[in-house]
Every structure is written in C-alpha cells, then in structure tokens.
Design a protein around this nucleic acid. Sequence first.
DNA 1: CTACTGATTTTTTTT
DNA 2: AAATCAGTAG
Length: 745
Amino acid sequence: MVSILDALNPAQQQAVQAIEGPVLVLAGPGSGKTRVLTHRIAYLINVIGVDPFHILAVTFTNKAAREMRERLEQLIGPGPTAGLTVGTFHSICSRILRRGIVHLGRERDFVIYDADDQERLMRRVLRSLSLDEKQYPPRAIRNRISSAKNELVGPHEFARVNRSYYDEIVTRCYERYQELLRESNALDFDDLLVETVHLLEYHPDVTAHYHDRFVYLLVDEYQDTNRAQYELIKLLAARRRNLFVVGDEDQSIYAWRGADVRNILQFEDDYPDAQVILLEQNYRSTQEILDVAQAVISGGERKHAKNLWTDNGKGRQVSLHEGYDQNDEAQQVVDEIARLIAGGDYRLSDCAIMYRTNAQSRALEEALITRGVRYQIVGGTRFYERKEIKDVLAYLRLLANPYDGVSLGRVLNVPARGIGERTESELNRWSAELGVPIYQALQELANMEGRQSPFATRTRNALLAFLSLIDELIDLVKQHDLPTLIGAVVDRVGVYEALLREYGADDGEDRWSNVLELRNVSNEYINLPREAQLATFLEEVALVADVDSLDPQKDAVTCITLHQAKGLEFPVVFLVGLEEGLLPHSRSMDDRGALEEERRLLYVGATRAKERLYLHYAFRRITYGHVNTTAPSRFLSHIPKSLLHPPIKRQQSITPQSTMFTQRSDVSSGVGKGYQKNRSSRSRASAGPTEITFAPGQQVRHARFGEGIVVSSKLVDGDEEVTVHFADQGEKRLLASFARLERVD
DNA sequence: CTACTGATTTTTTTT
DNA sequence: AAATCAGTAG
C-alpha cells in the first residue's frame, strides 16, 4: 500500500491521491505521467477499495495499454487487475458497440474498414454516382468525410454547413458511402467513435449502464483527442464526474487527424471544479537535452509555458551533424551507433533513429544492413496492409460477414478467375438496382433461370462458381479452429499458386511466408470458443497499430517515425532529416498551425532521449528520384549555439567529391547485393521441399517468444515445421521459413 | 480477360 | 526510386 506512493514526488502523489471529481494533470515530457496513471489506478483499487471492474483507462496505443497492465500487475499483483478495462478509444468503442449491437438496428456483427477499405468503398460510391475519379479523387473525398466524422458532423449537417459545389458532391458521396457501409455491415474507423457517441446519446439506458459500470475514467494523451472522443468521454463521465485526464499541449501532434488541443486547454471551463496538477520535473532526460528541447518549443506560440527541470545532471552536450546526403547521414548515424556499442556503455536496443516520413527509413535501413547492425523498423508498409495479407483477410472477413461488399469486391477476381472489370461494375450496378448487397445479388442470380440473367452464360458461370466457393468456405468456419480454417481457405483458394504466378518464385515465396505468418498469429486465438475465434481475430487485426509490434527485449536499433515515437524513451536518440521541407514538412509550411505542430514534433522527438541526443541534417537529399539541395530546419536556429556541440563534418573531413562518389556507389551496390542475397536465401529456405535444418536440443531464439529449445522438426508442405519449447511460452510449432529462428550457441 | 510495357504520378504524419 | 496507371497485343 505504501509502495504505491513511495516512489513518487509530491506533485505526483497529489495527482495519485486526488479526491473524487475531475482532475487535469498537465504533464511535461518524462514527468512520469504514465506512472501517475498507473499508480492512480493502483491507488483506487488498493487504497480506496474500488472494484477494478469500475475503472476504465484509455490509452493511445494498444502497446501503452499492455504496458500499463503489466506495470499494474507488478505493483499490486495480477489478481486485482482482472476486471479492469484498459484500451484505446477504438478498441473500447468496438467493444461497446458489439455489446450494444441490438440498438444499432443491425442483426449481425460488423466488420471494421481501414483506410484502404474506405478508399475502395469510395471508388464504388463514385462509380455508382457516375463521378469521375480524376476530378474527385477517392482519397480526398474520404479524407473530407473522415474529418467530418471526427467532428461528429453527419451528412445532413455537412450539407448544411458546406455549400460549395464541390461540397455538394462530397455530401452526395457521404450519403451514399454511409448507405453502402450499412449494407456491408461495416463501420469505418471513424464510425467506431461516431456510432458509440450516438449509441450513448440516444439510448439513456445504455448510458446509464455504463455510468454504473465505469465509475472512474482515466484518459492518457488528452491533448490528442478529437471532437468525437471528447464527446464520448463527456458522455461517459457525465454522472460520476470522476474524470482523470493527463496530457501536454506541447506534445499535441495529431491535429491533422482531427485532434483538438482545445479539449485540454478548456478542461477547466468544462469542469470548473477540476483540480489541476502540474508535473514539471523531468525524470527522463539530462539538462542539456531538456534545454535544447525547451529552446525549440519556446520559439513557438503556446498558452501556458511549462518550466521543465530535472536533477538528472547536466549530461553530454547535444550535437549537430551535417551529412553530405541521406546516405552519408545514415552512415554517420550507424558509425556513431557502432562506436557507442564498442564503447560498451550501450546496447543496440538503447538506440533509436527517428524521422519525419517513413520514406526516410530506406537509406537508414541500407546503412544498417551494410554494417550488419540489427534493427527493427516501425511503420512503412505494415504487415496487415500487405496485399497478400489483405487478400486473405478479405476472404476471412467475407466468411464472417458475406455482406461485406468491399471484401467481396477485393477477392472477386483474386486469384484471377475470369471476372473482369466489366463484370464487376455490372454486378455492382445490378445489385444497386435490386437494392441488396452483392452477395445477395449473387444468390438471386443462382436462383434465376439462365435466360433471365443479366449476364452472359460464361460470366454467369464464373460468378456462380465464385458464389459456391464462398459458400463452401463458409461451411468450413464451423468445422475448424482458426489456424486450420486459414490453412484450408488458403489452400482451397489456391493462394500459394497465385502468389508464385503473380510475383515470380522469389517474391512469391516471400509473400507466401507472410501468409503463413498470418496463420501463425492466429494460433493465439485457439483457446477461445470456436465461434468467437474468427470474429475476435478480425477485430484485433483491424485495430493493431504498428508500434504495438515493437519488441523492447530485442537487441536491435529502433527506426521509427516521430509520430510513433510519442510515449517512448531511449537512452540514445538520433533525429535525422532536420531540414526545411522535411521538418517542417513542405506540406505544412504554408499553414501557421501546421507549422507549429511540426515544431512540437521536433520537441517530442528530442524529449524521447534520456542521455544522448544527436541532431542530423543533410546538405542534399534525393526526393522523387532527383537531387535537391536542402537548408537546415528553421527550428534548429532557435537553439543557442552554446547548447550545441559544434557541427562535426565527417571524420575524414568532407572528402573530394570523387571519393564521396566511390564511397557511396560502393555502399549502395554492396547493399543491393547483400539485400538481394538475404532475400533470396530466405526465399529458398521456404521454396519447395527443404531439408531439416534444426535438430532436437538446438538452442534458438524467436523475436516474440524469446529463447527456447528445439523439441523436434519435420517437413510439412515443403516447409520445415519446428517444435520449440520456450521457457515462458511453452511449446510452439513454428515454420522455419518465416519464424526467423536464430540459433543460439 | 490477362499480361505486358511504357508513361505518369507520388509520400506526411496514423488510431 | 517505386508504385500505379493506361494502352495494347495475345
């Protein structure tokens, strides 16, 4: 009991022990706000005696939720945390909606559409309204609708407020889009929030239920909540008013996604009796790092300036480095990492490289590969966004909900089965005419006499063959557990053959191993009741974020975007690409608000560092395939020279151009080859019949499961299936081709 | 309908 | 530099 308050400073204690009612914690970076949240929950449970069942904590990512749970278990033991609800807005809304499904006037469970699905649906909308995709880009319209939804603006109100001709088009799309969503039994990402707010607004009994259920509400990263999330919280907290929010206006970096800092700035207006607690002491960084961060942020406009301080000591000076180009920049970073590791003070996992755009990771990746430095990369093309994965998932979603029009459209001709563009649009048109989902239209077609059919016999047969394939697969759902089901679907559909045909042997095998990995992931759902496995899997797959996959145990350098780095910390941080056009990004330069957000992004990045911070920019950079000379970021000019280690040129000094060229071409060709070799050898391992390469007793390491001992190994479907006993996880069966088992000697 | 080829466009950030 | 698109031959 004492331990809950023991390790906290007075301000933190005050927050943790706050009496009932609204509480606003304004917390600077590294001030232990996550700690305060965790300890607050522990305090509520252990000291106040609150049933964890009555506590709801909202985090920004699933990873943060998981970590909070873990720390809580360390603090008060696993038993008392059992009934606690911790999750992201989206996952919590998804759960509330599934429970309240009957109020939504839907009979079936819904599927969740991600950005890609949204865009496909929008294409269908545009086509059905005979609008030109060139003139009205689906993505732009989707964005428009998405921001409207974030502000809880429905089609009707949208039309009322926005009256330009273009907006009239958007309104029509919005309406049709919603119709099609409903027909597909689908909700898009934004709908999860919107529908939940509506559910609570229009169903007082449901709200009452949640008022009884969630007596204590805690929200992290409150500065990044959007209007819908704000309303949701307001509704949930209305009766009890035990709302505990934590945030930092200086770390608001999601305005482009609808986040509204006013939510945190006006908290005291919303709740005049709110206790406000300021956490200014920083426990993370050295004073030198904080000074630089402060200098960056003070250059901007902000409401209440915080005064960050630390007693961590002065630490090393932050350094600023100019590279010749992005490859040189990457080289400098990797050299420094190698130097730090060799010095023995740091491990690879202590180092993080942060950048503004995902595209910047490529040069870094190449440099890391050439030097043989292990790394994990967050972002880029996410696993669940890969085409082959989305295709398989589309089949699975279709089995869970055959009315899902986007998924149906996605797999209708994948693999190619003679149903082309023409047939597809005719099918769309026809089902719209009937006013039924496509799946139902196909069923009608099956019941029709051949000559009544709007399709030529050959086309009709292709469509009916597809329908019976789907029906055949639907029958499998009840018969198998999830991994077996996925195996069966993939097999019946002929995914492997299709991938080989489409991408050639090497890439096809790579993609195939992704599919096998998907099946592997599904193993985690095997203990659920069979009928819940598929739905739960699909839901969680839709809501995972990329940071969620970050493994802090793994000894590897982390490469991550500044946005995703929020909430993380590393002893050593490299911020790269600090140039005009990149940070601030060129797309943010003409808007004052956006520009300020870029500044905060740099601030967030700098404050991730505990001990060492390196700032990098390049003299020139290749973008869109051609070379541009760059200027150092304007934000750097706000940092007093005295705070920075004088800019260091490359160790050998900037060598004559010719040397630079030889050096770089060496590097890049080396990378090319190394990378290729790497890829193809991985592919070969999974191609066709292989040999057994793991022997019982062999010590191995897996990224997620840790170290283990090989129990047995056998050939299955031309792949090596290794059974490994892991110390923490028990026995797992893994496929050698993609599990990336490392041998430990 | 599919597969290939050359032209054109594209990246900001993500739950 | 890579991905997507449009047009064409089979």
